[in-house]
Design a protein around this nucleic acid. Structure first.
Lengths: 347, 347
DNA sequence: TTGTAAGCGTTATCAC
DNA sequence: GTGATAACGCTTACAA
């Protein structure tokens, strides 16, 4: 760029040596004398030389950047995942390029396109709520683009996957509701298209059946937009709560759904847990503070980001084609909360 | 990249013409015959040719990508700003690279470094809470890197700035509290280092003084971490509320501060607005739902992102050096809410 | 209308 | 130990 114009040639000219000597000196090649190295290093520092990553990429055939595709960055869970990804990527000298699908299949396709055009070395992706067809990803994968799926994964593409233990998290969470005496438990969850929805639903079902509690199918509500659409959740809640035989507890299956449900319950004048119990997957401090009386299910977001990125970078940097793929399941943490919180102050 | 290996040469070879003819045909040059163009286009599509952006950048001396620096993406306001930025950038064929400072000066410096090393064409930045020294940005600006500041701006660097009308927003918000009958109004705000803090505080002070209400300086609380640190706000709240002559209303000056305050008030058992009124800057749907009885100050986040990006791209693409810089002030929206919300259902 | 050649900044290979 | 040279993929004078 014009504003960062110091190149290897400038150093070469300055010292009266060749560009290739400078290049070698800068990477501490054994071919170059100590004296020259010292002079080059000094000069590079003095002129504030920075290698041009474009030129390096062009030469080396890689870009040292990773593409990230999430539904939205405005979500505590994904924000934490991205933080984990950044931490590993930066430590290994990779950059990340973040894109959002806003839960749209079309945007997912065009973002993936955008990223590969921009020449990424690998892709970290959590599928959008809408996505059913994986053609766009299969094609890239077949061409050799390393891909790691996280959170919302698919088994249709042979590669690494990192997920939280959604099944166990849902199972334990449901159990804790049952232990607390609740029986009429409703489950508000995401789109049926994505992998995690099934896992959580199955955990819920197992806990219920182990306790000989039949699942009322009217009490299972899907939210196609995953909590981003307030109306969708409002509708689900209305249907659940506007009946004489309404649930005595809600189990919400995603960060946004939990937060939104909490908001709506407050708005509707329901006290928690006196009027209705609420337990949900959440990575927002919010739910725990507003809802101190019950457990919540915390997803290992930062760890997930780290793990996925480590796996991706190892895929990228492995010399030979990888044939063994791993599905890593990280433990979900069910936080059992103590309802005896001190109330600090006089009103 | 190895997985996307179709180059201009492949097309040239396929058609038995030269690479430069292909290049020209692809950009619809007048020099090339219609027949050749058609053949090239067909072949490019058939082979799924994608230009290598690295090579283009190297040649053209630009990267068609913009750097974004925000404190954190896990914040409704910044997430909305980024959405606005993406919408403009994509429409003009720019990519964005998002980085977070987590309110740390050191991270701000290293991110900016990272971005320029990665060769961005321009920088969109909202200063971190901690930043006082602007040397790192001044140096880049002097070298010719186009920069646009948004939200948390500085007057020390001669360039475009985009802000919300924080002064007016705070003024109107405070007025609405006063009109509602509150007199003992506390102000919880961000770090005193950043520009918006002063603007908001001044709006608050003007409204108070116009109504002949003295500002109790004990009622003005600064949060150096801008609401990210729960303890900081808890401390401020405790100090404010644990006195006999406590405030009857809180005016919070930032999205995260509003949300966190809301959480803590609930936790402490304060009802809003019966026990204490709360009015704040917020871009989260949350606050409005939980706090339906009062106004809230909505920042034009999406518009801010759009405007800042338009200005940056015009800076980048302007041929001659720009000497006239603009400070755009977007209107803040004070939403007066109706407390008569229907409560839907029987408990 | 098309082809040739040089060059963007870097690096690898080979010669000196 | 150091320097020429070619190459990465693309663009653009300029030559044909």
């Amino acid at each position: 760029m014009n504003f960062e114009a110091v190149t290897i040639k400038d150093i070469a000219r300055e010292l009266g040596i060749s560009a290739s000597a400078v290049s070698k000196a800068l990477k501490d090649s054994y071919e170059i004398s100590e004296k020259t190295k010292k002079a080059v290093l000094e000069c590079a520092k003095r002129l504030n030389y920075r290698p041009n990553p474009m030129a390096q990429s062009l030469k080396r055939g890689n870009s040292k950047s990773l593409g990230i595709v999430v539904s939205t960055i405005d979500n505590t869970f994904f924000a934490q995942v991205i933080n984990g990804m950044e931490s590993v990527a930066y430590s290994k000298n990779y950059n990340v390029i973040i894109t959002q699908t806003h839960e749209s299949y079309d945007l997912e396709v065009s973002n993936v396109e955008h990223l590969t055009v921009r020449a990424i070395d690998g892709l970290l992706i959590s599928l959008s709520n809408e996505t059913e067809d994986l053609g766009h990803l299969k094609r890239l994968h077949d061409k050799g683009l390393p891909i790691v799926f996280f959170d919302r994964v698919t088994d249709d593409i042979e590669t690494h996957r990192v997920v939280a233990d959604n099944f166990r998290g849902a199972y334990e969470a449901t159990n804790s509701l049952i232990e607390a005496g609740y029986r009429k438990i409703a489950h508000i969850t995401s789109s049926p298209h994505i992998s995690i929805t099934d896992d959580r639903l199955n955990g819920f079902r197992l806990a219920m059946s182990e306790n000989n509690i039949p699942v009322n199918e009217q009490f299972v509500k899907y939210c196609l937009h995953g909590g981003r659409d307030l109306n969708e959740i409002e509708k689900a809640l209305t249907e659940l709560l506007c009946t004489p035989d309404r649930p005595d507890a809600l189990f919400t299956a995603a960060d946004r759904i939990t937060t939104t449900t909490l908001m709506l319950l407050h708005k509707l004048g329901f006290r928690i847990p006196e009027d209705i119990a609420l337990l949900g997957f959440t990575n927002t401090g919010l739910a725990e503070v507003l809802n101190p009386s019950l457990s919540s299910v915390y997803q290992p977001a930062f760890e997930m980001g780290k793990k996925a990125t480590e796996m991706l970078i190892s895929l990228i940097e492995s010399r030979r084609p990888v044939t063994e793929f791993e599905k890593v399941v990280l433990p979900t943490e069910v936080i059992i909360r103590d309802s005896s919180k001190p109330v600090l102050i006089h009103k």
